[in-house]
Every structure is written in C-alpha cells, then in structure tokens.
Design a protein around this nucleic acid. Structure first.
Lengths: 169, 169
DNA sequence: CTTGGAATGTCAACAAGACTGACGTATTTT
DNA sequence: AAAATACGTCAGTCTTGTTGACATTCCAAG
C-alpha cells in the first residue's frame, strides 16, 4: 500500500492516465509486447544451438565493433562468466573474432566476422520487420511517445548507455 | 536483406521515422527498458526463493481470480510442466489455493490467499511506482503513443488476450 | 626494480526455469 | 464404451544466469 491511487491528487482529472488500472494495463502491455519483440529472432535461433543471449551479444558487437568484453558486460548487465560462455561458442563457430588489445594486452577486442555479420543481418531484419510494421500502424507521434516512455522507464545507468549508443552513431 | 530501407519509398520524407537506424534505436530502447521494468520485482523476489515466473503467475491470478490452469497456460505461454513447478511451490507456501471446479470437476480454480494478495501488492506497488514515474515524466500523449506501439508489436493471439483482460475489468 | 594489488578474462560447478516426452487419473463428451 | 479434455508428475535436456577459483597483465608504491 505504498502510494495512494493517482486520481486522488490535487490535480484531479488531469492525472486520470496515472490510475492504478492504467498502470496495470501498461505493465501487461509491456509483458505481451516483449514476447512479440523477441519471438522472431528466437524462432530463427532455435535449432542452431544459439539463444537470446547470443543474439544480444551479436547485436551489440555489431553496433560497436572492436568493443572489449568489459564494455559488453556493462551493456548487457550479466556476469563475465555468463557472457564468456556465449562468446566462446561464437568464436569457436567463427562468427566473432577476439583480438588481444594492442595497448592493454589484458583486453580482448571483439568483432563480427563476415559470417557473424550475415547472421546479425538475418536476425535484425526479422526484428526490424516487426518493429517497422508496429511503427507504421501506430504512426510517428505514437512512436515518439513510445520512445519517451521507454527512456523514462530505464535505470539511470542504462539510460546513459542507451543515449551514448544512440548519439554515438 | 529482406526489405529495403524505409527512406527509399515513394513517400520520402514522411517516413523518416521508419529508417533502419530509428528502428534499431527502438529495439535497444525496448531491451534496456524491459530490464528496468523487471528490476524492482526481481529485487524483492530474490532471496525468498521465488523468481520472475512466480511473479507472473501471481500477477495474472490476481487479475483473474478463479482462473483455471489452462487459462493461465495460454496467457503465460509456457508448458504445463513449467507452470506446475511454480504453482506447486506457491500452493505449498500458502499463497495460492486450488479448488476443484464445481461444474467441471477436472478443472482447478486458482485464487490468491491473503498472504498471496499481500505479496502481489508488494510486487505490483514496486512495479507501478516505476511505471508511474515514467508516465508522469512522459505525459499523457506519450503514454497513449506508448500503448499504441506496444499493442501493434504483440502477436495476434497475445493482443486478443491483452484486450480481453483490459476490457474485462 | 620488484612486489602487491587491481583489472581482465577463463575454467568449473551449480541453480533457475524453460523445454520435450511419457504416463496416470479423473471427468466429460461423443 | 470409447475418445477427448484437464490436470498432475516423473525424468531428462538445454539455455542462461550465478559463484568460486585461478591465470595473466598492468600499474603504482615502496
């Protein structure tokens, strides 16, 4: 019972979109939408012994070629051991290369090979196709609102990481 | 290379929000936001031997008291074996009750006990608090757009389930 | 220059939570 | 009476997260 209901504020009607019921709808929408969001890449990956974790690694290596393991760790928010298992298989299968750092030899710089880029294309084409359909149906104003809310929903650290990626391209 | 770039269409400028780069930003925003979205309940659950799976079950039993196992299965999109493991612990711990159906005795109707409702409150208060902050920062128009895009992103079946839940209250 | 601590990354073992497949039971439908 | 449905359970696998232990490399203080 942490907070009261949103409609019981001094502003009254203006805040009707903040009622518990509205918030609950938003929560469920996030749940169902995220399932759709990951469904297409999951389908592609299943049967090739990769999973969502591999997709995420491939995605961010594609976006920041030459990034280090530590960098990736911060973005993905998992332990280095967890990431390592995924990276190892990707390297073994020739989708990712790992080069020892020139200045700091402790670091490993990660890049997608041609085969890696090809898979990345396949995965992100599928995911973008769904995104594009959703965007097209919803229209530009809705898309702007969508992004505004998502940014506000992130943890502070993640928002920084997101904005850095967004503006660094 | 399934589709062309969105800007290369007959409509030209009007569809700039559909460029691959814009779509990629949306994809990353979803990823980071979903992490924030689940972070608070996850924190509460950790250490009490429950996880996100328990949270989801509790959430939907709360929304549809007396629902059957099969109903829950369809909404959550997991196998009955998977759900059963979760339900068993919740019932053992006295958070959920399972009653044999009155008309159809094969069915089990699931309801939250008082303790279950208490935990549900605790979890959804945390999640709603984050949602409320995000909504408040973004404003009502952004929230409307947010929901529009999310609905368009769901699979058809899930949209039906979502709308049924949304309108059935 | 050496040595100890911090940072980076690897290997091994384990747990949660998803999956499949097979089977049993009670009940309803045909 | 037979088939289908709803539910529970056992056993085994897979992905992906965790911790703990350890090797290598860098850097800075003595």
């Amino acid at each position: 019972m942490a907070e009261g209901h949103a409609q019981n504020t001094s502003s009254g009607q203006a805040l009707l979109y903040l009622t518990d019921e509205q918030l609950r709808q938003g929560i469920e929408a996030m749940f169902f939408a995220y399932r759709g969001f990951t469904a297409d890449p999951d389908r592609i990956l299943e049967g090739m012994s990769y999973g969502r974790a591999h997709h995420r690694a491939i995605h961010f290596i594609h976006c920041a070629p030459g990034t280090t393991v530590n960098n990736l760790l911060a973005i993905l928010g998992v332990t280095k051991q967890s990431l390592n298992r995924v990276l190892r298989t990707l390297i073994e299968d020739g989708l990712v290369t790992s080069h020892i750092g020139r200045s700091d030899k402790r670091e490993r710089h990660l890049t997608l090979t041609e085969a890696g880029e090809a898979l990345e294309q396949q995965l992100s084409d599928a995911q973008r196709a769904r995104m594009r359909d959703a965007y097209r149906k919803a229209g530009p104003e809705a898309v702007a609102g969508f992004k505004t809310v998502l940014e506000a929903m992130m943890d502070e650290d993640m928002r920084r990481a997101y904005l850095a990626l967004r503006d660094g391209r």
